[in-house]
Every structure is written in C-alpha cells, then in structure tokens.
Design a protein around this nucleic acid. Structure first.
Length: 269
DNA sequence: ATGCTAACCTGCGCGC
DNA sequence: TGCGCGCAGGTTAGCA
C-alpha cells in the first residue's frame, strides 16, 4: 500500500472529482476485503459528498449522515473512470456518481477496506491513533517522551501507529538512514537530540514525498487516472547489497518482524 | 502490560 | 512458455 504520501496524493487527486457529487449507486463486486464490506455502506446511496480528508492512511469521505472510510491496504488504489469502462478482475467497488463518472476501487491483494461510520471519533480504527507526522503535535520531544524505557527497536517504534501514524516500511527505512540512527537500537536508549533529528527528517521525507506525488509503486494509479507517482530518490529502501549513497560501504539488509530493513553499518549508529 | 508471530490475498521475479 | 518459493506498501488478533 500506499504509504501516507500515496494516500494523501489519492485524496488530492480524487477530491475535486467527487466533492458535491451525489453517489447514486454503490456496486460491491467483492465484499471480502481486510474487513468485509458491510451492507451499511449502501446508506451512502443518495447522499452528497460534503468533504474529503485523510487521517493516518484512511481516506474519509463525509456525507450528510456519516462517513465512508477507505483504507488502501497494500495494493489498493482509487481512480476515476467513465461509466462505460468495464471493470477488471480486481476492480471490487464502484461508486456511480451524479456527474456520470465512476469512482472505482482496485485492490489485487484485498488488504484494503471500505467502512461506514457515523462518527469517525468513535471509530475503533481511528480513536487509538497517535498524531499526524506533519502536525505540530508530532515532535522529537514526543518521540523521546513516549520511548522512555521502551525496548522495541526504533524502527518498530516509529512504525507503531500509537506513537505516530503514517510511517510505513519505506519511509521508516529512509528516515532512519537520514537521521543516522541504526534501526535495531532500543527506542528507549536514544537521546533527545537524536529523536529531534529523527522527527525533523520524518517530516521532511514525508513532506517531500507528498510534494512529488508519492513514490513510484506498481499498483497505484492516481485519482485522475494518470500514473500518480514521480520517481523519488530512495536512499536505502530496496537497495540491500548496493553501495551506500553516503560512504564506501554496502547497505545491509535484515528482517525486523516480517519486514525488510535496510541500513548502513557505517552511517547509522 | 509487552512483544512476537501468523494471518488476511494475489502477483511477480527468481532459481531450477 | 513449467513449478515452487519467497517476498511485497498494512494492520490486527492471538498467544507466550
């Protein structure tokens, strides 16, 4: 999936096309997603889109009577198509809109979700989440406070949505490289100064990725139907065994949990 | 509480 | 144009 910048890019791409539109029909061809698509979703038929926003990696579409919440999982994407375009194999959901266009959800791996909630503040998916990484609330100070006495590796720590949302595997690797912090270090043993550096680079990396429309990944198509990504410089992600961009060493690849970590033994201590 | 693993599912690239 | 394996952007349930 899309990491946070990709969700933000989707939000920005889709918003102008669906805002103020009435959803006339919801077509669910495959309800078996990360969580089954509930029949409650049909409530949005006949309702108008009042706003589009993002919280963590969830895309929130506000209607008069509640919210539809999309999650793109690992391989989900949303785009606008014409009514006459036949759905493909993994095009699981369509919203047919009053302007004659169709918002179409595509997700080969089906780790995504479409949920209906009356009030996002009450949603169990949202109410335990930490701050947005690009908000003022997220800071080195916060990372430092939350990590005291924590033995979890720093990479695992920054990918924990209760600490800060939206830092996925790609950007966790990139941020730790830019901060010069080894991903395996216990979060609780990192100094305040280093945490401040880390918070700064997380903001920079995510901000830059959003600016560039996200990283090029094979499953994503932008909301307007054009490829949504511009190539972004990734220093370490996907480069295990290659030369470190900053020194003569080779990038080392390890597994942390079920995820691949790449780092430089010389530059990250 | 904390922390790790497995699970959800399909597709792709690699080695044979 | 085969076959099996491991891996891929996320999140949560369940177990020690």
């Amino acid at each position: 999936m899309p990491e946070l910048p990709e969700v933000e890019t989707t939000k920005r791409g889709v918003e102008p096309h669906i805002l103020d539109q009435t959803i006339e029909t919801v077509v669910v061809r495959q309800p078996k997603l990360r969580w089954p698509v509930s029949d409650e979703i049909y409530q949005l038929e006949g309702q108008k889109v009042l706003s589009v926003s993002r919280r963590a990696k969830y895309l929130l579409v506000e209607f008069e009577q509640g919210y539809a919440m999309w999650h793109l999982g690992m391989s989900g994407s949303l785009r606008l198509v014409e009514k006459h375009e036949a759905p493909g194999k993994h095009d699981h959901i369509d919203w047919l809109m009053s302007n004659g266009k169709v918002l179409r959800y595509h997700d080969p791996r089906r780790f995504g979700a479409l949920l209906w909630v009356e009030n996002p503040a009450d949603s169990e998916h949202l109410n335990h989440l930490g701050p947005e990484p690009l908000s003022e609330e997220f800071s080195g100070e916060l990372l430092y406070q939350k990590s005291r006495n924590k033995k979890v590796p720093i990479k695992t720590f920054i990918m924990d949505g209760k600490v800060v949302v939206g830092v996925g595997n790609i950007y966790a690797n990139e941020s730790l490289f830019l901060a010069g912090i080894r991903p395996t270090i216990a979060a609780g043993r990192i100094s305040k100064a280093r945490m401040e550096k880390l918070a700064v680079v997380i903001k920079q990396v995510l901000g830059k990725a959003i600016e560039q429309g996200g990283t090029t990944l094979r499953d994503f198509v932008g909301g307007d139907g054009k490829p949504g990504y511009f190539a972004q410089q990734l220093n370490v992600y996907g480069r295990g065994g290659e030369k470190c961009p900053a020194c003569d060493g080779l990038l080392k690849e390890i597994r942390q949990g079920q995820r691949t970590t790449v780092f430089c033994k010389t530059c990250q201590t």
